[in-house]
Design a protein around this nucleic acid. Structure first.
Lengths: 226, 226
DNA sequence: TCAATTATTTATCAGATGATAAATAACAGC
DNA sequence: GCTGTTATTTATCATCTGATAAATAATTGA
């Protein structure tokens, strides 16, 4: 046969710079593993990327290395420092701050890939979830509880440390939002199409519980003023 | 070599009736798949059961058949009709009814195997989750909303149909309980050790939101009496 | 005690799967 | 245009994995 300039499947061979190709592989892997889980096969991933399977191994020595990279890409660096400022900005009513935060958090963090990879990671015993939950408690839930204290007229955390019960009530807010995406991306159940409306309704309902808990268990900072 | 009466690994061959062996296999499979997911290998399952791998195929023609059986065992028949009576029994305060129900539901349904298999099933695109959610809405959430109506002094669902928003507020109660077990069995994060206390606290917080929603969106059945 | 039945095991297949080595072709510099 | 470099592919290995067939041993009934 005459030598051909084409590859086996007839398409011209595409060449990218290592940086570009790596980007393509990582992005494809995120999509792929989010969809089928980490038991997904390298051959199928390669096919979706339009490359040969061994090329993956040029960029990642083992499948596990690629998976670790996916974890990093999805979980590290998606947390925005400005979110913490949003929560703490007392020039805006707390309810609005929470709604704004969850609007941002949902659109930037709680995506299809994020939710599913997070759940796959949890089920396969990775400690990423625990680490993420720690981050969440420190950077979101404690600040939220602090703001709830202020909104409820309760003493500052400096005076009375935040209790487990208060953290739980902040988890309730978070869980309610999170569960929306679990239903949407994991169970694939019909969900309220207007996400913004869902978030504001949910914050309304669950913030109430947190305020009540705080008032009842921590009390007023200055009872005689009441 | 002299013929031996033992099997290769030196243990005497155990014989069970087909019914008994099937029971052992199904129970083992539930544990096994809950732990490692449905990508778990039949050889490893067989090893845990102390049987040879081909014996599995004597009882289940394919691995998928075994998986279906696991679904049936775990999800079908764990729902107890009496739970619906518990929810509807107006001789008891609604708060207590919900706490009693979730105590029972948590201990009988929301087990390690249940939670993990449910999540594995969802991630692999099974429709079991959707079917279960439908069951839950009809047999739990709608009844809960009905009772919330009564407790809030709002009109009966016969007069004013239950809204999506009310269902969402019932979901919030459920999601908060559910999330506790997700944290415990999937993320393996430390959780409140006193489950009963967690449930009663959570019902307190989240039921409040549902009552508020109902009062504000459905209103009082007899406003002039207020 | 012996033969028939069948629960269970050993041996094995065929295709899948992560990974490696060698061959090929696109590109860069001169 | 030629040549060296390297991004990419083809070919292939070794092991894993669901599934099947044949052999074996525990049990049952006469």
């Amino acid at each position: 046969m005459a030598p051909t300039t084409k590859t086996a499947d007839g398409t011209k061979r595409q060449r990218f710079s290592p940086a570009e190709r790596e980007r393509l592989i990582v992005d494809g892997a995120i999509q792929f593993f989010a969809e089928v889980g980490f038991a997904g096969q390298t051959r199928e991933l390669a096919q979706r990327l339009g490359i040969s399977q061994p090329l993956l191994y040029r960029y990642f020595p083992t499948k596990q290395d690629l998976i670790e990279r996916v974890y990093d890409e999805v979980f590290i660096g998606r947390w925005k420092g400005e979110w913490e400022h949003m929560i703490a900005d007392r020039t805006i009513p707390l309810r609005e701050r929470l709604i704004d935060f969850y609007d941002a958090y949902a659109s930037e963090a709680l995506t299809y890939e994020w939710i599913r990879i997070y759940m796959f990671a949890g089920l396969s015993g990775e400690d990423i979830n625990r680490r993420y939950i720690e981050l969440l408690e420190q950077r979101l839930l404690v600040p939220v509880c602090t703001e709830v204290r202020a909104a409820a007229g309760a003493p500052d955390p400096d005076a009375v440390p935040i209790s487990e019960l208060e953290i739980e009530s902040a988890w309730n807010i978070h869980a309610a939002i999170f569960y929306y995406f679990v239903r949407k991306f994991i169970y694939r159940t019909p969900v309220e199409p207007d996400l913004a409306a869902y978030i504001s309704d949910t914050v309304d309902r669950t913030l109430d519980g947190a305020l009540v808990v705080t008032r009842e268990t921590v009390g007023n900072a200055n009872p005689r003023a009441a």
